[in-house]
Simulated assay, not measured.
Amino acid sequence: MGRVTTRRRVARLTLGAGITRREDTLVVEEPLEIRVGGRSLAVTMRTPGHDVELAAGFLVSEGVISRGEQFASARFCAGDAGVGNTYNVLDVTLAPGVAPPAPELAREFFTTSSCGLCGKASIDAVRTTSAFGVQDDPLRISAETLVGLPDRLRAAQDVFEKTGGLHAAGLYRVADDELLVVREDVGRHNAVDKVVGWALTHDLLPLTGTVLMVSGRASFELTQKALMAGIPMLAAVSAPSSLAVELAIEAGMSVVGFLRGESMVVYAGAQRIVPAQAEGSAA
């Protein structure tokens, strides 16, 4: 696995106090080429670590696989130059009988750390059909529990604590009051793919009764990824996009934004949130 952080000499300037020089910790950003059966599928800019989960989650998001048994193995390999093992090329092997990705899924250029849908030909192409429905998911969560999730996510962000430069995604299971997994990455879509990939490799899909908590905004791509994994609720500390909300309403998914302090804004699926004043009488 490559380095997650690196050290660099920097100059810190403070008005009225001059310049001080010291070393600072930066998060590493490197490309990862994802191949399936030796054929290149996508290149994404990511923070090294949990790359197998990233590839597995990406394949779920693209509708290639939906069950752990369909993901046979993955191995790092040398790039086209054939020089060594840089841990930046990952080749996935699907289980026998699983159809390979359609040729049109291949990304024609880099997916940047800020864009998980770059390379798609049209908005219709990203409305991938999910193998799991969330419309009838029985998830119910108290408002008090929900407002506590950002702090629980932040407490688990070890690399962010050192660098201040990472997005995070966490998967919370309501029935157990447990934050099952937290993943960090320079790309918010990668962090979600790592969470979904973790769930796939633990045979947990569909993720019924869970909340996907993210440290940034609730974009269309994150809503789409949650839906593909069967997650009934997406909660974010920042705003959702209009398309994210439209997709959530269409799919019967809940979207919560501006989850900060003791307040939130519910954009879709408000029936899944139990207000504090009603908790004592909730069934």
Results as ranks from 00 to 15, higher is better:
Val4Gly: 14
Arg8Asn: 12
Arg12Asp: 15
Leu15Tyr: 14
Gly16Pro: 00
Arg21Leu: 09
Arg22Thr: 09
Thr25Cys: 04
Thr25Asp: 07
Val27Phe: 03
Val28Asn: 03
Glu29Lys: 10
Glu33Ala: 05
Ala42Thr: 04
Gly49Phe: 14
Ala56Gln: 10
Leu59Met: 11
Val60Ile: 03
Ser61Lys: 05
Ile65Glu: 12
Arg67Leu: 07
Arg75Trp: 15
Phe76Tyr: 11
Ala78Cys: 11
Gly82Met: 05
Asn85Asp: 08
Val89Leu: 06
Val92Asp: 02
Ala106Lys: 14
Phe110Gln: 05
Thr111Cys: 11
Ser114Ala: 15
Cys115Ser: 06
Gly116Pro: 07
Gly116Met: 08
Lys120Gly: 08
Asp124Arg: 01
Ser130Arg: 01
Ser130Tyr: 10
Gly133Asn: 08
Gly133Arg: 05
Val134Phe: 01
Arg140Gln: 11
Ile141Leu: 08
Val147His: 08
Gly148Asp: 10
Gln157Pro: 04
Asp158Pro: 06
Asp158Ser: 14
Asp158Val: 10
Phe160Ser: 15
Phe160Trp: 15
Lys162Ser: 12
Lys162Gln: 13
Gly164His: 05
Gly165Gln: 15
His167Asp: 13
Tyr172Glu: 15
Arg173Ile: 01
Val174Gly: 07
Asp177His: 02
Glu178Ile: 02
Leu179Val: 06
Leu180Val: 14
Arg183His: 13
His189Arg: 04
His189Ala: 15
Val195Asn: 01
Trp198Val: 03
Thr201Ala: 02
Leu204Gly: 01
Thr210Gly: 02
Gly216Arg: 10
Lys225Phe: 07
Leu227Met: 14
Leu234Arg: 04
Pro240Trp: 03
Glu246Pro: 04
Gly252Ile: 08
Gly252Met: 09
Met253Phe: 15
Phe258Pro: 08
Phe258Lys: 09
Ala270Arg: 08
Gln277Phe: 09
Gly280Met: 06
Gly280Glu: 07
Ala283Val: 03
